[in-house]
């Protein structure tokens, strides 16, 4: 294969742009005013993020 890693690394960045573009295309925007406290520790709020170790409810 000819070329250098500049090509493939650029494609990796393009992949990330494509992931973000999926949200933009669907009209999904983050709302910073609905964001949780900066730290979960000490927030008093229950952990709510998704994790690969969790079974679906």
């Amino acid at each position: 294969m000819t070329g250098t890693r500049k090509i493939t690394a650029t494609l990796a960045l393009a992949f990330l742009v494509a992931v973000l573009a999926l949200d933009l295309a669907a009209g999904i925007r983050p709302d910073p005013f609905a964001a949780p406290p900066i730290l979960a520790l000490g927030s008093g709020a229950a952990a709510s993020g998704a994790h690969c170790s969790a079974l679906p409810d």
């Binding site: 992931v19 999926l22 669907a26 979960a40 520790l41 709510s48 993020g49 994790h51 690969c52 170790s53």
Partner: peptide, 25 residues
């Protein structure tokens, strides 16, 4: 990560979510 997110470091869920968003698109 644990202190900020409230959960430990993970990788796989996010990747599946990206593909799920692609499927919906």
């Amino acid at each position: 990560h644990l202190a900020v997110a409230g959960q430990p470091w993970g990788v796989v869920y996010g990747l599946g979510l990206w593909a799920a968003k692609g499927a919906v698109a």
